[in-house]
Simulated scan of single mutants.
Amino acid sequence: MAEKEIATKVVPFQASKLSKKEQIATMFDDIAFRYDFLNRFMSLGIDIYWRKVALRYLKPLRPKYILDVATGTGDVAIMANKMLHPDKILGIDISEGMLAHGRQKIEKLGLTNKITLQTGDSETISAPNATFDAITVAFGVRNFENLEKGLSEMQRVLKPGGKLVILEFSNPTIFPIKQLYNTYFRYITPLIGKLVSKSKAAYSYLPSSVKAFPQGAIMVNILKNTGFQDVTCKTLTFGICSVYSASR
């Protein structure tokens, strides 16, 4: 079985009869109240640096209208507004719990006139063809139920000459980073997740989903086969994270 097929089989709750999409929405609804804290805590704040690196890919483009897919609590949308100064940002996510926290953050920052968060699915984006100048996805593509369908849909709503930037976890291969990373992800991350968010399943799913997700050259080829051009992949922090850039 191909890696891209395996990735869709990894789900948060193995015994559940719900679809992967439904399980993901439920999982993030359950951990939404602690999601931002756990991101900062478990990554030692490095996730902020990763997001900045990804958004720098869009600076030369000067996008006016940005779509942030799997926006969660809106971290990338908020950072994109500060770094790129677009006219408008739309963030979509299948977890209403995450969106509710994101809307609170946006309101406190006085950005409700610039950033809109709404319930939305990457596989059926409610927008006409060629709507957005740029699309971002941070730590969300591995959660797609149908990876290629989600990528195709993003390609559809991206303007010609527009750019897609994907930020996703990857598996480091350098000794001893690989060994330390695997130990941390496999044993420590689920424990912290259980203690802080009361959901061990969510943070046990994380390492499993990263391990199964197609990475590097395989992901580059998937993006090309989906119709994207000028596809690149850059690893960050010893290969713990990867940035994929692609144009329509």
Rank of each mutant, 00 (worst) to 15 (best):
K52I: 07
R51N: 03
K64C: 07
L55I: 06
L55A: 02
R51M: 00
I46M: 14
G91F: 05
T26H: 13
I46T: 13
D47F: 13
L44C: 14
P86C: 11
A80T: 06
K59F: 09
V76Q: 02
T73E: 01
Y49W: 15
L44G: 13
P63W: 09
M83Q: 14
V69F: 00
G91K: 05
G45D: 09
I66Y: 06
P63Y: 09
L55D: 00
D30G: 03
P63R: 08
I66V: 13
K59T: 15
V53S: 01
A70M: 07
A54F: 03
K59C: 06
D87W: 11
T71M: 04
D93R: 06
D75L: 04
F28H: 03
K64E: 11
F41L: 15
P63Q: 11
W50S: 00
I48A: 14
L38R: 07
A54W: 02
A25H: 02
I78P: 10
N39V: 12
G74P: 07
N81V: 05
G74N: 06
G91V: 09
G72F: 01
D30V: 04
I66F: 09
M27C: 07
F33I: 03
D87M: 10
D68I: 08
D75K: 04
Y49T: 14
K82P: 00
I31V: 15
I92W: 10
R51F: 02
D36Q: 06
I78C: 11
W50V: 00
R51H: 03
G45T: 10
P60S: 09
Y57R: 15
Y65C: 10
T26I: 12
R40V: 04
F28V: 05
I78T: 07
R34G: 03
A32Y: 02
S43F: 03
F41G: 07
W50F: 02
V76A: 04
D87T: 10
D87F: 12
A25I: 00
G91I: 06
L44D: 09
T71Q: 08
D30Q: 15
G72E: 03
D47C: 12
Y49K: 15
G91T: 09
P60I: 11
M27T: 12
P60K: 12
W50N: 01
Y65G: 04
I89P: 07
L61C: 02
F28S: 03
D93A: 12
